[in-house]
Design a protein around this nucleic acid. Structure first.
Lengths: 344, 344
DNA sequence: TTAAATTGTGAAAACGCTTACATTTAAAAC
DNA sequence: GTTTTAAATGTAAGCGTTTTCACAATTTAA
């Protein structure tokens, strides 16, 4: 009820409580060696005077502010946002705060943001999303290596082998492979693959698609692999892309997509064209995001274990920060969640 | 290419460059009074030695870390996430970082989070979303008043009159009213209102619905105002709620909803029941989020100017931080975006 | 009892930077 | 060629904590 621009310091408290600042500091850090009575007295005075420790001074002394940097390309992406949310929550429960940084998709900018966070003295950085790893120009990933010299780096949905870097990801290759095989078993032969990112996991998923076709002796044609190059919020951009390949005469009886929003676009395409789903066209999405439930029919999707991975990521990070030896790689299996956009 | 746990300080630089630490500090803060040659020399040495200023020491001296706290209930909510993204980006462009804090929907927790941010010495706090204001228990809003004594508080999508609090919001009452009137003009008479939040803007929207009916001499029945009490990701929970009122015999020829995801649920309900949209049922959503485009038909929605408001919010905040006098209230008009879920 | 160990406390030196003030140096004015 | 003024730099005192080390007071052990 009392304080303004809180200028009350440890000195004021020490004076009022009749002890030295060292003792006050001790109760602040609940150091063991302080008489219960003194402690009580001091706590009381602090309360009364509305004392708020100065975080900067504290940081200067302790060399940590209990803050973790979270980087993500775009927090308005539902999927990434969910991860950020889960991570942030778990960290808070463990008394760490999060400094969020949305970097966009440009590598130069990612590097800059990471540097910035390090300069703000975060205790670690979490890179959320596979787009932090470049699969084409490997030197683009040097910024991670460099940063890892200063603080632990956590990767969600990507894998990068390097000292002080910890990767947690889903086995996207096999998850996609299973999804395709699921369709093959239902008799689908012309399976369209939709993707929108050449990120680390993007590449893995595509490999999974290819492997599945090969191993099932189905013809593999580049025509059936379509890159959707729109803004992720622009469903109609995706729909248009699909319509275009359709107009060109390409026919397909199933769609596997690297993201749920692509599956939604596929469904929208089907409804517009009057194609029956799942009878004439089966559709599978990826991420198992809430989006997959919003449509009618609902969309079968690969659950890539975001929730579990996020939790494990924080657990691993906490371990690392405590100086424990932790696994550098953690891989979870994806799970196909069957819904109405595929035949049961 | 060089540094490790950067222990190089301003002293090392000053020694190497043959100047005093004051001068080094001056180039760090690009103070004007320093000889260009000296500046160059120092910058060079800094570069060479891989100097990174210590943010804590800096903060202690300057009493600011150029960091803004952003609070939102749940960053995995597409709508809030978008706002967070826009704000974060605008702040970064102005050399401020953001400390993100997801509070959940409990008031006690909101208060705690805000205190925490203040203790971390943020320069201001932005509360994103109308759920930070309690319209029923007004004492629940004291935490804002209290916090405003320490730092400027920015409210997005809510309005709270108080010293050092700045509110930016959409005129939700009239926006909703217009939406309802739009339907009335098309001859709709039995308009269902769907809402899921009793937040500040939630209340305004509902008022708008009521006013519109009254002013158009349509009967106003509580049966037509349905509260949807599910988790926002649980579309099917909402669908079920609508189904229930339908099973009870309630009939309606239009739905106005306080959020796009409710409109999506309404559409899903209609498709399941075989009700034709927009012919037999017109649907209007709110927020004009990307979601509204994902369906077929696409959903008519009220654009509540999130983008404009976010931008204006940051502009206002920057003004406040520079000590300028800024308007405590900024209100934008909503815009109805017509799509296929209503007749043209 | 007395020596040794333990516990609680205080004094003062960091921590790495900013900045008011003092001082030197250079440029401008006369 | 002085004197005035301005520009560039240095000195040192903070900023609000933590923490080492020393010391006193209290137990415990012998």
């Amino acid at each position: 009820m009392a304080e303004k621009k809180s200028k009350i310091t440890i000195y004021d408290i020490s004076k009022e409580a009749g002890v030295s600042i060292a003792t006050v500091s001790r109760v602040l850090n609940d150091s063991n060696n302080v008489n219960p009575k003194t402690r009580e007295k001091i706590t009381e005075v602090m309360e009364k005077m509305g004392y708020k420790p100065n975080a900067f001074a504290r940081g200067l002394g302790l060399d940590t502010m209990k803050t973790i940097g979270i980087l993500c390309a775009d927090s308005s992406d539902t999927y990434l946002a969910k991860a950020v949310y889960l991570i942030e929550e778990a960290l808070r429960q463990n008394n760490y705060d999060s400094l969020l940084c949305c970097t966009g998709y440009d590598f130069q900018n990612k590097q800059k943001s990471l540097d910035l966070l390090i300069s703000k003295k975060v205790d670690a950085a979490i890179l959320v999303g596979s787009n932090f790893l470049d699969t084409t120009v490997s030197s683009n990933n040097n910024y991670i290596k460099e940063a890892a010299k200063s603080i632990p780096i956590m990767l969600l949905n990507a894998c990068f082998e390097c000292q002080n870097v910890y990767s947690l990801f889903c086995d996207d290759l096999n998850a996609t492979k299973s999804a395709v095989e699921f369709l093959v078993k239902k008799g689908r032969k012309k399976i369209l693959y939709l993707y929108s990112s050449k990120s680390y996991s993007g590449v893995k998923k595509l490999e999974g698609y290819k492997e599945a076709l090969k191993e099932n002796n189905l013809s593999l044609s580049d025509d059936y692999i379509v890159y959707c190059n729109s803004n992720r919020d622009d469903v109609n951009g995706f729909v248009k892309t699909i319509e275009e390949v359709y107009e060109k005469g390409l026919r397909f009886d199933a769609v596997v997509s690297s993201e749920d929003y692509l599956a939604i676009a596929a469904l929208k395409f089907a409804i517009k064209k009057g194609i029956s789903v799942p009878k004439d066209l089966s559709i599978i999405g990826y991420n198992n995001s809430p989006m997959a439930l919003m449509t009618q029919p609902e969309i079968t999707s690969v659950d890539n274990r975001l929730e579990a991975l996020s939790k494990q990521l924080v657990a691993t990070l906490l371990g690392v920060l405590e100086g424990k030896e932790m696994p550098a790689k953690t891989e979870y299996k994806g799970i196909l969640i069957e819904r109405d956009s595929t035949e049961s």
